[in-house]
């Protein structure tokens, strides 16, 4: 079904679509290549941080934070520069791309 709709589109929309795709890829190649990966990994955070990353008791919220605040914390936890009880043990498992993309994901969630 979706294919049919795709074929019926006129050339200009098609062109626009491709531009959008290229634009997206250039913004964030990894995210565009692996949106499911980041969605699944972000959902792992909700076990402790609560539905929608809204925070849970003394466990802080993630949604709507500045991306740079999240990356700063996660890189800090990972290196040990930022003291933590448990987050250091989690952040050490993440690579730099994952940290950036998770931060982007949560910062874009509704504030």
């Amino acid at each position: 079904m979706k294919r049919n709709i795709f074929i019926k589109w006129n050339a200009s929309i098609y062109f626009l679509t491709i531009c959008t795709a290229v634009f997206l890829l250039s913004i964030n190649a990894v995210m565009a290549a692996a949106p499911n990966k980041i969605k699944i990994m972000a959902d792992a955070c909700l076990t402790c941080h609560g539905p929608n990353g809204a925070g849970s008791g003394k466990i802080p919220e993630l949604k709507g934070l500045e991306k740079s605040d999240i990356t700063e914390s996660l890189f800090g936890f990972k290196s040990g520069d930022e003291k933590s009880t448990i987050m250091g043990r989690y952040a050490k498992a993440l690579n730099d791309d994952e940290i950036n993309l998770l931060a982007e994901y949560f910062s874009a969630l509704d504030k």
């Binding site: 076990t47 402790c48 609560g50 539905p51 849970s56 008791g57 003394k58 466990i59 448990i86």
Partner: peptide, 17 residues
């Protein structure tokens, strides 16, 4: 103490999730 507080937060979070 901080971990005890997080334990409670964890419980609330995981049961909601």
């Amino acid at each position: 103490l901080k971990e005890a507080r997080f334990a409670s937060g964890w419980y609330k979070g995981i049961t909601m999730d």
